[in-house]
Structure formats: C-alpha cells, structure tokens
Amino acid sequence: MTLRIVVMVAIAAMAIGWPFLLENRYITHIGVLIAISITTSVSLNMMLRIGQLSVAQAAFMGLGAYTSTLLVMRLGVPFLLAFPASGLLVAAIAAAIGPIFLRVKGVYFVLLTFAFGEGIVLMFQEWVSLFGGNNGIHGIPKASLFGTSMVSLRSYYFFALGLAGVTLFTSIVIFRSAIGTVLDSLNENEALSQSLGVNPLSYRVAVFAVAGFFTGLAGSIYAHYTGFLSPDAFSFWSFVDMLVINVIGGIGSPFGPVIGAILLVPLPELLRDVRQYQMLTYGLLLLTAVLFLPSGIVGGLRELQRRWRAR
C-alpha cells in the first residue's frame, strides 16, 4: 500500500511540475499528448475491465473532435459549451448503440465495433461538405474559456491533465463502488448475477457511455489543441495505440494505461528520425508483453511486491 502511495504522489508531483521542468515548450507539448492519451486509454480500460474490447473508441474520439470543431467553427458556439457537448453527444451515441452492440461478447463485439469505427471514418472521409474529407479541417480556433483564449501551452497542459485526472478518478470510483462489484460479478458469473436481479446489459451500456463521454471530451481538446483534423487520426491504428498503451501498462488496473501512456507516447518522438522502426517497436512491444508480461507493468509490479512480502 505504501509503495502505491509513494508512486501516486511521485506521479502527481511529476505531472504538476512537468511544464516547469526545463521550461521547454517541446517537453510541455509531449505532456499535453500524454494527458490526452491517458484520457482515451483509461476510457478503453473501462471497457476492457467489463471484458469488452471496444475498437470504436478511436471513432468516438473522432466524433468528439469533429463535433466540437464544427460547433465552434460553423455555428459559433463558444468552446465552453462545445466541449461538454462533444462528450455528451458521444455518450448519447454509445448509449444508443450500446443495447444492440453489448448483447454480443468477445470476438463478435470486437468485429461489431470495428465495423462501426470503419463506417464512421468512411463518413469523415466521404462527407466532404461537412467533415472536409481527407483534406481535413484547418485553422480550428484555440479553445477559449470565459472569453479568454487559451493560447499558452501550459494552459492546455493543465486543462488536458485535469481531464485525465477526472477520467482516472471516475474509473477508480466506478470500479471500487457497488457498481464495480456488480460489474465484476458479471465477469465472473453472469447467470448467477442475473438470478440476483442484476440487468447486465444496462450496467454495460452505462460503462460504454461513460467511456464514450470522456473519449469524446479528449477528442475535443485534441482538435482545439492541434488546430487541424483529418480522418486518419481516428482510424484503426489510433485504436491500436490505445490498446498497446493498455497492454503494456496492464489492463487489470486503471493505473495500467496511465503508466503505459507515460512510457509510450514519447516513443514516436524519440524514434522520429527512424519512422519505420517506430511501428516495429510497437509490434515487438505487443508481442513481448503478451508472451512474457500478460498482465502488463502494473501486473508485473504487483507480482514483485507479492514476492517481496512473501520473503
């Protein structure tokens, strides 16, 4: 327990001190990317913990990004409203498709969300008048809060960090609460839980909607931070990024994807000069993790801690 507290305090201190470290814009930029990645990966982690691998998460991020962008650019809606709207819209979509999608499990759910995701990306690509097609949308205005535009990198960093924190907190609360017990019982023995009066579908749809909500919000920040959107940012490969982060960090705990994101998001930047090796590294990391560290870094640490105590 003490180890966990030390690690958490260290991570929190690191997170807050990060943009002041070296006073380097580039370091802060990486920090923003990590924070956005934590939000999307922790959301995917919520789905993984109810035993469903949702490939639709990348498309959800895209839906949030385009919703926020179009609301601000086309309808002149202030960011303060467009931001929550993007999360709520994605949550509503998840809640609408959830009752159909979540009736199936395992491979079938993967295939279903895969088809959904591909369909959404195809819509972004082909509905040019609304989504700008493969050329994407340029010049997305910076986010503004209460009339002041967020121009500084640091303000984005703390905004994204705040969202990541809230997402992580929500995930922890959900899975530690009575709801979490119900969800775990569904994974253990669905028939028995049902016999006790639990409606499994509604719990799963709720988690799907919550995961969609935060992923949509992350999409909104991403859009206004980068100022540019194109469909391929939300393709299957962006889902693979979220998944690699979860597998490396460990899918059994909400802290798994946090550690995964901190370790993996800077990787493409380090391997920038050798782009083709970046993908290979991802692939090899996945293989290594599945074969030798199936419960990820968090699982490995727990194992070490257990052995330490047993001595």
């Binding site: 491979v107 693979v240 993908m279 090899l284 996945l286 293989l287 993790a289 599945v290 199936p294």
Partner: peptide, 16 residues
C-alpha cells in the same frame, strides 16, 4: 483476448 493482441502485434511487425 491474448490471441487477438498477439495477432495484432504480428500484423504490425510484418507490415513494418
């Protein structure tokens, strides 16, 4: 689940 992840890893490796 692990089979799926492994297949994804193989796919990424072969492509790169």
């Amino acid at each position: 689940f692990n089979c799926m992840i492994l297949a994804l890893g193989v796919s990424i490796c072969l492509q790169s």
